[in-house]
Design a protein around this nucleic acid. Structure first.
Lengths: 312, 312
DNA sequence: ATAGGTGATAGATTTTTACTATCAAATTAT
DNA sequence: ATAATTTGATAGTAAAAATCTATCACCTAT
């Protein structure tokens, strides 16, 4: 089954040059081919199109009316092909293009605004199209090529992916000011036993992380009230519905000193989560993504949340 | 010396179909070629462009960022090529197109308005770009392909041209009303001996035709005053500067009954000129031009100048 | 373990493009 | 008038490119 595109770009180049030169022999010399090549190729093109393109005389070749009207189209084809080649060459540094990055809602909005300006400065041809999703979704969408890379929270199943650790982010205890522990200078893990802890709804990985932490601490997660975002959690704490844990980047970004909240560390227990950048292990943009991960690791110590620890 | 257009339209078709199908094998089936053909051709294209176009996985092939950005350009190329082919096919009836017709100033403006409406009705795809020039110029420009055909006055040198006779146009004697011959019922050739006849300037063929006629009649051509157009000649006759001969088509078209002029035939002498359509004998549009000439011959008896005689 | 599905690889075959040599025709120069 | 020159066309050969056949490598599902 042959295609209907029954002409070649080479033939179009011959067509144009003969028209410019006014003779087959003149064009042959310009193109560095022999004159019978042009005779044969133009004859083939004329046969394919069903029209004569040149009037042949002893003194050369004159374009027909048809040829004259086709010439602007020929030029446009050549321009588009050149554009195709030029666009492709713009990608040869491996940076240019719009990459689709999936981010978690508990991390992306609080990290990216702090690192994107510097990333843009270092990778000027790089464009990022940011989309949010919970970690399980992000991994799946990365595997099915809906995302080119993801910024997500560990653990990330590594099969078929390359996972580049970025940094460790502590979780902060957040209490209303009228809570019995709010005025305590130092809060120990034992102080949290029996406390009602608010968390996000079940499909968030954050829910599982807080739930496991509570089991370690002997605290209870409230199941009757669950937040839909970190902001919602914060509002619920302000309203006295319980306490919660919030990520350090969120705290640094969204909680003011004037908020009626106490933000504290808990001694005797390690509370944190680790973040990573991940992409498909066969992605041709792998080198770029590795450099991007390294850049983020370099920039993390300069963020508002000063306790972040870079992972190697 | 090889060209810089180092890709083929076939490769672009493969590129697009693999992207659409999501796999090399699926695309191969659609295109009716084998999968290794696609592997080889895409590899060649990727090498030529210097970028990876597809990420190959076990479950198929995914376009890279580069490929995604190149796809609209690819579509545009294909559209332009299709436009090239479609435009060419529009010429296969041999009629379509803009043809450059050269006409003499003493004939073209007075004949074409009368025949063009019917010509357009019969050849709807035909466009005529009309340019004026004196016969010697017209023939030269036809030979050098500046015109595609000419409407001119015989004699036309036939070498390298095909000349199709159209019709014979009488010349009319034109006198001011106060001329001694104006009230004469019948004007004989002998009546014109010694008369001062106005004509066009020398580079017009018309000048030579009138000059030869005057020699036959024993009349004199005025050399001190020469018109630049037939309209100028008419004005000069009205002003009493002499008499002149004007073509029948001009008379029918431009002279009113209210003009202070006598228009007459001269007995005893044949005064006329013959017109023809001419084109290069190797022009691919020859069949069209022959039909056009025949059409004009059919239309001529219906013009305002009723004494025109069709030539075969 | 086998079966099924993907793209890659190697060698053979087919098709297309281009070259070499020459011819035919027309024009120009002598 | 003849000879020389210049043009595109033609025929056969050579080289390059496209495509096919057969198989392999790898992974997932049964």
């Amino acid at each position: 089954m042959q295609p209907k595109l029954n002409l070649s770009l080479r033939q179009l180049e011959y067509f144009k040059t003969i028209s410019d030169a006014g003779s087959f022999r003149g064009a042959a010399e310009r193109l560095g081919v022999t004159q019978p090549t042009l005779t044969a190729q133009i004859a083939t093109l004329e046969e394919s199109l069903g029209v004569k393109l040149f009037e042949r005389t002893r003194s050369g070749a004159t374009p027909t009316v048809a040829a004259r009207e086709l010439m602007p189209v020929c030029h446009r084809i050549q321009e588009e092909v050149q554009s195709f080649v030029d666009t492709a060459h713009g990608f040869s540094g491996g940076v240019a293009g719009t990459y689709r990055i999936g981010v978690t809602p508990t991390l992306g909005p609080y990290l990216l605004p702090q690192v994107l300006p510097e990333i843009h400065k270092r990778f000027q041809e790089l464009r990022l199209f940011v989309r949010e999703g919970v970690p399980a979704e992000l991994s799946q969408d990365l595997r099915s090529a809906k995302h080119d890379l993801i910024l997500s929270t560990q653990p990330i199943a590594e099969s078929g992916l390359e996972v580049s650790p970025l940094f460790r982010e502590p979780l902060k205890l957040v209490l209303p000011l009228d809570h019995r522990l709010a005025s305590k200078d130092v809060i120990n893990r034992t102080d949290l036993m029996g406390e009602e802890v608010l968390t996000l709804d079940e499909h968030h990985l954050y829910h599982r992380q807080v739930t496991e932490l509570c089991q370690t601490l002997g605290a209870n997660t409230r199941r009757d009230f669950e937040g839909t975002s970190l902001d919602t959690l914060r509002q619920m704490v302000v309203m006295g519905m319980g306490i919660t844990f919030l990520p350090a980047l969120y705290v640094a970004s969204e909680i003011r000193e004037t908020d009626p909240l106490r933000v504290a560390d808990v001694f005797g227990v390690n509370m944190y989560r680790d973040h990573a950048l991940a992409w498909r292990s066969r992605s041709p943009a792998r080198p770029l993504f590795r450099r991007l991960a390294q850049t983020i690791r370099e920039l993390v110590p300069n963020t508002a949340a000063s306790e972040l620890r870079v992972l190697y």
